[in-house]
Design a protein around this nucleic acid. Structure first.
Lengths: 187, 187
DNA sequence: GTCTATATCAAGATAGAC
DNA sequence: GTCTATCTTGATATAGAC
């Protein structure tokens, strides 16, 4: 059942959003799926293997996002705002971005997973740069501003806001999104 | 030796910056201090006790920052930039802010530690708001902008940038700091 | 007060039954 | 292909020697 593999990876991502790579266990997954730990080990022999699969799935999702953006007929402004909203609203209040979670646990990751997370992080920035560059052609963002600087700042602020939200509630994230919106209108 | 307690807490903070609350162990600390695990348990019976001490120490440092800021004779611009630089440069390239680290591990923290981290997060935002409000009186930041929104966005972006830096190297953080600097000059 | 020794438990992982 | 049973390891924690 190739579907079970996907089910396990999805659950692992959810758990990583909630507790992180180090804190989640095969026991968590097996209990939620109503099977034994050993059956998870059958699908992913080592935690490292599951970790790589998780990172690859996150990478795939990002690549799909990139495609959707490129093919979309929406305005650059719409696309950028959609992407930011999506980054923020994809998660429950107690969850954070899985990429942030894996970046935090970076030192504890097997090196195969570390490398994938490097790839993921670079692609994520590339996607955001793509959006910012397009927004500049529509004069949503001042063209004198450096694409790379704007892109990493937007991404960082959303990721950081998700950390605060987990502790302080929805307000923090909402405030940051309003501020970013202001930033996209005025400069 | 009351100094040993301080030594352990400082080491724990360092380890939390590097690996996080879940991943660090009494074994890590005891090895670095050249003593046994049991001797760490003598000073902090449970990991939870050490966690509370860590959070309280972070809180104390923040309170000191707040005092220094209030008593400082520097311009509001200087103070704000100093604080941001300090937030960023306090850490090695492989480390992140201990508050971010504990926010990420929030779900795994004992509730006593969770509460302290809530306090810390609120105070941190209060400190940044203080700085932003002062900067507004000097017209470094446009007074039409909401203090709270600007403060949480600056904080979030620095914290997020530290996550990316760990994986992608110093550049990301540098770019965000330049962008924040731009933001403080122009609007 | 600081240590050794040890208990306890949960996690990752493996062997082999069905 | 999925399970039970089991091994190993490492982490938290405790009891008691010095």
């Amino acid at each position: 059942m190739e579907n079970r593999k996907k089910q396990i990876v999805d659950l692992a991502i959810k758990l990583i959003q909630q507790k992180g790579y180090v804190a989640f266990s095969y026991d968590d997954i097996s209990k939620q799926l109503g099977v034994t730990k050993a059956s998870i080990h059958y699908h992913f022999e080592k935690k490292e293997d599951l970790g790589v699969a998780v990172a690859e799935r996150i990478l795939l999702r990002l690549q799909e996002s990139l495609m959707t953006i490129k093919n979309s007929q929406a305005s650059a402004e719409e696309k950028l705002k959609q992407f930011i909203q999506q980054q923020a609203q994809r998660f429950e209040c107690t969850e954070i971005c899985p990429i942030s979670s894996l970046q935090t646990d970076y030192e504890s990751l097997p090196s195969a997973v570390q490398e994938k997370i490097g790839e993921v992080s670079r692609l994520e920035i590339r996607v955001m740069k793509e959006l910012v560059a397009e927004a500049q052609t529509e004069n949503i963002i001042n063209s004198s501003q450096d694409v790379h600087q704007v892109a990493v700042t937007i991404l960082s602020s959303v990721k950081g806001a998700l950390l605060y939200r987990r502790v302080l509630g929805n307000d923090v994230l909402a405030e940051v999104l309003i501020q970013l919106d202001r930033f996209l209108k005025k400069p």
